[in-house]
Design a protein around this nucleic acid. Structure first.
Length: 745
DNA sequence: ATACCATTGTTTTTT
DNA sequence: ACAATGGTAT
């Protein structure tokens, strides 16, 4: 059988173990995907029915990749397997089983932005201040609880202080509001499925018998709710295979419990364990560095990846004066490697800890004219214009969705302001109805203002006319009609001034959305070809899904987002204390170890070359600051490192770079690139953000907005210097020197 | 009701 | 520096 011919001994064991619990500890680059796909093929060859197989992955991308490779290997039989993320699978189940739950089939899915709005409403009702109960903090507390399957009542009972008691109240009210809006949030999708199965053993058994063979990928990143779900589904047949690597557990902050994988043997005492430690991805040097770093974690099962690959190049480490020169260094190295070693752009990945760091990299790549694509950050479906269209669509299928209604009832403008909306909401609460249902009721609207009244009937008529299309129009038609009839396009164009860059990009995004709809119309399965499923698919979509290998560009992404990916050449940037490890994650040992695992994940993405960089000073959070070298650099064994730190005179040069500064190349043997001249001469992109300004009373300053003015007063000193500036015709402004866009002239 | 302005907080990572 | 919020003027 040629399924097994390409595999090593451990991999064969993993593939051919069909019955009973199985734990596959798959180190980075150990051929995991190949094993999983071969396993699927082997199962089918053994006569196991594809529709009895459930495979759960962590990302849509992984799911798509698996589906595709299964299709190639076993053909159409693969279509009958259930492959998807936890959220996608649970959503599918909930849509089928909604009769056993207390929500309607067409429920909306609230993202974190919608969540915030609901939480704020709860706070207002409970008369709690946003200052004491920061919506973000409350949201994270609620999310954590849901991931632990803790209900509001349980939360309240366990509350040991006033804050938690009140959060318990908010949680309860939040949950109530969601159900009134017929909405679920991300965490609900998992939790409600678990609760459903716990409540309805008969329904559970239906799915147990359907999913006789269960596979869970990235098991180290499952949270308690997900663990419980798997546990319930696998209870009857015990054919559960989990794959993961404790060293790559990087989602603890979002409720992932590394204990799930560590305790697998306890949960399933008769389980088999396979360790995949041979790495097929990286060079010896890269692996040695990875091992060297991860060994610093004390709470860890020992494991050492090995390879038969060649030693390869040393790992390069460069220390640069600031983030702009760091970016220039990366850009130039990419340029040279592509010129001299036949790499293409798609072979490169630039990694960073936080999305904010992508900014300076992006600027420099633009300046160099190198093609790149940023993953993460502001997602397509989070953009205002897209959320606006989606709010219309959501309200169409789910009239109870007050959050969506609130978003669009007065956009485009219809003369229904916040006062009128608040009135509507109050009447709705009193009448135990949704706001939308009120709109048709003339009597209830008696005491609304005239313009509001007109606006409301206009809005209601609009929505009803759109609703008429729901049954027999394609999604594309509906989307186009929504845009046309609401005048969204014009309103969005106006909002930032027509012709502006912002307006242009919004129009582009709208068109992009139409083509997403068209694509859905073409590809969706017949039974799922409706607005509800379209919206659900969009809610779970991420930027990473559209990863196209075909296009040739450099990838920019966070370390978290790289999980499961690999690149011939990897740059890990921003290796500074406070940045990576991140300041918010270095206080507790547990968190620090997770940061280290994140570093390990980053290193092990690299196949051929690994470049590490750090900036001595970095502009973050509105100010330039000096950072120390990351401890992770110090943990790398010196013998694998080709390190070059900033030399003393280099650092000296920096002091007067106010005008003539240009990034000075470190003295490494490098062929002159076509771009280096432009870097050495022109320095237009290199701003002097790190320059310390000394400002006294009487100085003239230039402000980005107010123009030039004279300093009339200073208060405080050094970093906290507060200055009062008189701007002609605009009065005296008090400004914080460290934040204000000010230049001394 | 709306538009504009100033003050405030905010940045970790994401299905 | 930025976005988002809240207050004030029109």
């Amino acid at each position: 059988m040629d399924i097994l011919s390409q595999l090593n001994q451990e991999q064969i064991t993993a593939v051919t173990c069909t019955e009973g619990p199985l734990l596959i500890v798959a180190g980075a680059g150990s051929g995991k995907t190949r094993v999983l796909v071969s396993r699927g093929a082997y199962f089918i060859e053994q006569g196991i029915k594809p529709n009895n197989i459930l495979a759960i992955t962590f990302t849509n991308k992984a799911a798509n990749e698996m589906k595709e490779r299964m299709l190639n290997m076993v053909g159409l039989a693969a279509e009958y397997m259930w492959v998807g993320t936890f959220h996608a699978i649970c959503l599918k189940i909930l849509r089928r089983e909604y009769e056993y739950c207390c929500f309607d089939r067409n429920f909306s899915i609230y993202d974190d932005h919608d969540q915030q709005i609901v939480i704020k409403k709860c706070l207002a009702e409970l008369e709690l201040t946003e200052k004491a109960y920061h919506p973000r903090a409350v949201a994270s507390e609620i999310s954590k609880s849901k991931n632990q399957l803790i209900t509001p009542e349980q939360y309240k009972n366990a509350a040991m202080d006033v804050w938690r008691e009140n959060v318990g109240k908010i949680y309860k009210s939040y949950k109530h509001k969601l159900s009134q809006n017929n909405a679920l949030d991300f965490d609900d999708i998992i939790m409600e499925t678990v609760l459903l199965f716990q409540r309805e053993p008969k329904r559970l058994e239906v799915y147990q018998d359907r999913f006789k063979y269960i596979l869970v990928d990235e098991y180290q990143d499952t949270n308690h709710a997900q663990y419980k779900l798997i546990n319930l589904l696998a209870a009857k047949w015990q054919n559960i295979c989990v794959v993961g690597d404790p060293d790559q557990s990087i989602y603890g902050w979002r409720g992932a419990d590394i204990g799930n994988i560590l305790d697998f043997e306890k949960d399933y005492p008769n389980c088999q364990i396979v360790n995949l430690e041979r790495n097929y991805r990286s060079t010896k040097n890269i692996l040695s560095v990875a091992n060297g770093v991860i060994e610093n974690n004390t709470k860890r099962k020992p494991k050492k990846l090995w390879t038969e690959a060649e030693a390869g190049a040393l790992i390069s480490y460069r220390e640069l004066p600031d983030e702009r020169s760091e970016a220039s260094y990366v850009a130039e190295t990419i340029f040279d490697l592509r010129q001299n070693q036949k790499f293409t752009y798609r072979d490169f990945a630039i990694l960073y800890r936080t999305n904010a760091q992508s900014r300076s990299l992006e600027d420099v790549l633009i300046k160099y004219g190198l093609p790149y694509k940023i993953f993460g950050g502001m997602r397509f479906y989070e953009r205002k214009e897209i959320k606006d269209i989606m709010a219309y669509l959501r309200l169409l299928v789910n009239p109870a969705d007050n959050v969506s209604l609130g978003r669009i009832i007065n956009f485009p403008r219809r003369g229904i302001g916040s006062t009128s909306l608040a009135k509507l909401a109050a009447i709705a609460t009193a009448a135990q109805s949704s706001i939308y249902d009120l709109l048709a009721d003339d009597e209830l609207l008696l005491d609304m203002g005239g313009s509001a009244k007109r606006g409301i009937s206009k809005f209601y008529a609009l929505m009803e006319s759109l609703r008429a299309m729901l049954t027999d129009s394609s999604i594309t038609c509906i989307v186009k009609e929504v845009i046309a009839k609401t005048g969204l396009r014009e309103a969005l164009e106006e909002e930032n001034g027509k012709g502006s860059v912002e307006a242009e990009s919004r129009l582009e995004n709208i068109d992009e959305f139409i083509s997403v709809a068209a694509q859905f119309d073409q590809t969706a399965e017949e039974e799922a070809k409706n607005l509800t499923d379209f919206l659900a698919q969009l809610s779970l979509a991420t930027d990473m899904d559209n990863w196209q290998e075909a296009d040739d560009y450099i990838s920019l992404l966070t370390l978290h987002a790289t999980k499961g990916l690999e690149f011939p050449v990897v740059f890990i940037t921003g290796l500074e204390e406070q940045v990576f490890p991140h300041s918010r994650a270095m206080l507790e040992e547990r968190e620090l170890e997770e940061e280290r695992r994140l570093c390990y994940v980053g290193i092990t993405r690299a196949q051929k070359h690994l470049y590490l960089t750090r900036a001595k000073s970095r502009f973050l959070k509105g100010q330039s600051q000096i950072y120390r070298e990351s401890r992770f650099v110090k943990e790398i064994p010196e013998e694998y490192l080709d390190a070059q730190r900033i030399s003393a005179d280099f650092w000296h040069d920096k002091a007067d770079f106010g005008t003539g500064y240009a990034w000075k190349k470190p003295p490494i043997k490098q062929k002159t690139s076509m771009y280096s001249s432009s870097i050495d001469s022109g320095n237009d992109g290199l701003t002097n953000t790190a320059k310390k300004q000394i400002i006294n009373v009487g100085d003239k300053v230039q402000h980005a907005k107010f123009g030039t003015g004279m300093v009339v007063k200073t208060k405080g000193s050094a970093d906290d210097l507060e200055i009062s500036v008189a701007f002609p015709g605009q009065g005296i402004k008090n400004l914080m020197l460290r934040y204000a866009p000010i230049k001394k002239i």
